[in-house]
Simulated assay, not measured.
Amino acid sequence: MTPSAAASAGLAQCAGAELPQHVPLVSASRGEMLESIHYGSAVLLDPQGEVITALGDQQARFYPRSALKPLFAVAILRSGLELSQEQIALAAASHSGAPRHQEVAHSTLRDAGLELAELGNSTDLPYGVAERASWLADGGSATQLAQNCSGKHAALLAMCKHNGWATENYLAASHPLAAALREIVEELTEERITTISTDGCGTQVYPMTLAALARGFAKLAKAAPDTAEGRVAASMRAYPELVAGEGRDVTELMRAVPGAVAKDGFEGIQAVGLPDGSSLAVKISDGSDRARMPITVKLLASHLGDQTPTALEDLASSPALGGGEPVGELTAL
Rank of each mutant, 00 (worst) to 15 (best):
A5E: 15
R30E: 13
F72Q: 15
L119V: 05
A12I: 10
I37G: 05
A17P: 01
Q87M: 09
E115S: 12
S94Q: 03
A7P: 00
E118K: 00
E86I: 00
Q48I: 02
F72M: 14
I88E: 03
P20L: 05
E115M: 09
L119R: 10
S8L: 12
A42Y: 13
S41Q: 08
S66L: 02
Q13W: 06
G80M: 08
T53P: 01
P70F: 14
P20E: 06
A6R: 11
L109Y: 02
S79E: 11
A12K: 08
G97N: 01
A105Q: 06
L90H: 03
P20H: 09
C14F: 10
A12L: 06
E32R: 13
G97P: 02
L11M: 10
S96R: 00
Q48T: 13
H101A: 01
A98G: 00
A92G: 03
Y39N: 12
A9E: 15
L45M: 11
E82M: 07
I52G: 01
A42R: 07
Q87C: 07
L25G: 05
L34C: 14
E82D: 14
I76P: 03
V104C: 04
L77R: 04
S84M: 07
E18P: 04
L45R: 09
Q59D: 15
G120Q: 15
I88C: 06
V74E: 07
L68E: 14
G56D: 08
P24C: 04
V104S: 01
D46F: 07
R61I: 08
A9D: 13
L71Q: 09
H95G: 00
G31C: 03
P99T: 12
S94D: 04
A6L: 10
G16T: 02
E82Y: 01
I37Y: 04
E32I: 03
S8F: 04
T108Y: 01
L77A: 03
I88S: 07
H101Q: 02
Y63S: 10
V51S: 01
S94Y: 00
H106N: 06
S4H: 07
I76T: 08
R78F: 00
A75G: 08
V74F: 11
G40L: 09
P24S: 07
Q102F: 00
L119G: 05
R61K: 14
L45I: 11
A75L: 07
L19V: 06
V104H: 02
A12F: 09
L90V: 12
C14E: 10
L68T: 13
E115C: 08
A67L: 13
Y63R: 11
A117L: 08
L11E: 07
C14D: 04
L109C: 09
I88P: 04
V74S: 11
Q87D: 05
A15K: 06
S107Y: 00
S84T: 15
S41R: 08
S41C: 11
A73K: 03
G97C: 03
A112H: 05
M33W: 05
V74P: 14
G40P: 13
